[in-house]
């Protein structure tokens, strides 16, 4: 109870301080318009009249993430890769054995989970595939999808996940496939440059002033925004299975780990 009182006192102090700041004229009003850079992005993000600057996607955030500031995101994906590799290498030598186990929560919870997991997968796939049209994208879909293995591990136990085929090796290879796909989509303009001879840039999406290379913005009449949909799909794979590996490793019981660690010490 005392903690709640102190926390309420903190809020009261914040209110008093803001009254003092208002009377004294310090700080000041928030939100006085946006910068001109934002206006540039918003005007050009889906602007077929300005072919050399547009990303052909109505979603400004995804366009900046994978087109205007694409290389930043590529390097952040590398950081993500390194962090997961760090987690895996801390658990090297630990084998995730498969065995039949009926552990877990009650039958009701398991049934409800069996209904909810497909819904979760559908929602995540929808977020990833519509990432260039509506709010969403590879990162969001991967984060939403990563909740599914956690729920399965908590409700069923990790043996269920392993029995269904989601082992560490499978997750690692699917994640590597996602990263490889990102690298491939980033390098396709270079391949086009080698084969056709016309200039192209790494991670290029639509035509530029001195390059006629362009990913198709429409496929069969529906908007796919060039390379954005491919980046979203591959990032979805990479993020989902990156988090899955981590939770598979986190759910290993301590006795197994200690046995492996102790074995290393005495060798």
């Amino acid at each position: 109870m005392r903690k709640f009182l102190i926390a309420a006192a903190v809020i009261v102090i914040a209110v008093l301080a803001s009254i003092a700041a208002t009377v004294g004229g310090a700080l000041g009003p928030l939100f006085n318009g946006v910068r001109s850079l934002a206006e540039f992005y918003l005007l050009n993000v889906f602007n077929p009249h300005n072919q050399t600057l547009t990303a052909m996607s109505p979603e400004a955030v995804t366009s900046i993430v994978w087109d205007y500031r694409g290389l930043d995101t590529l390097f952040e994906t590398v950081v993500f890769y390194m962090a997961i590799i760090g987690c895996v290498s801390l658990h090297r030598g630990i084998e995730l054995i498969r065995k039949r186990s009926e552990a877990g929560l009650s039958r009701i919870v398991k049934t409800v989970t069996k209904i909810l997991i497909p819904l979760n997968i559908v929602i995540a796939a929808s977020i990833a595939l519509h990432g260039h049209l509506t709010p969403g994208g590879g990162f969001q879909a991967g984060a939403a999808m990563a909740v599914a293995p956690i729920i399965v591990i908590v409700v069923f136990s990790r043996f269920f996940l392993l029995r269904k085929g989601v082992t560490k090796e499978v997750a690692l290879s699917l994640r590597s496939m996602g990263l490889l796909g990102i690298a491939l989509v980033a390098l396709i303009p270079l391949i086009a440059w080698v084969t056709t001879g016309s200039a192209a840039y790494v991670m290029q999406n639509q035509v530029k002033a001195d390059s006629s290379f362009s990913f198709p913005a429409y496929i069969g009449g529906s908007l796919v925004s060039g390379s954005l949909i491919w980046y979203n799909i591959f990032e979805f794979l990479a993020v989902t299975f990156g988090f899955t590996i981590v939770f598979l490793l986190l759910s290993v019981d301590e006795e197994t780990v200690r046995k492996v660690l102790g074995g290393e010490e005495h060798e």
Binding site: V61, T62, I127, P135, G136, G137, F139, Q140, A143, A144, A146, V147, I150, V154, F243, V246, F247, L250, S251, E254
Partner: peptide, 26 residues
């Protein structure tokens, strides 16, 4: 910022407390 909400809710309310709970249990 609907994009941020989509990524922030699963990560900060789902994944991160789950990971820390695993850590606390161990």
């Amino acid at each position: 910022a609907p994009d941020i909400v989509l990524v922030y809710v699963p990560i900060s309310v789902g994944i991160y407390p789950a990971a820390i709970l695993f850590l606390i249990r161990k």
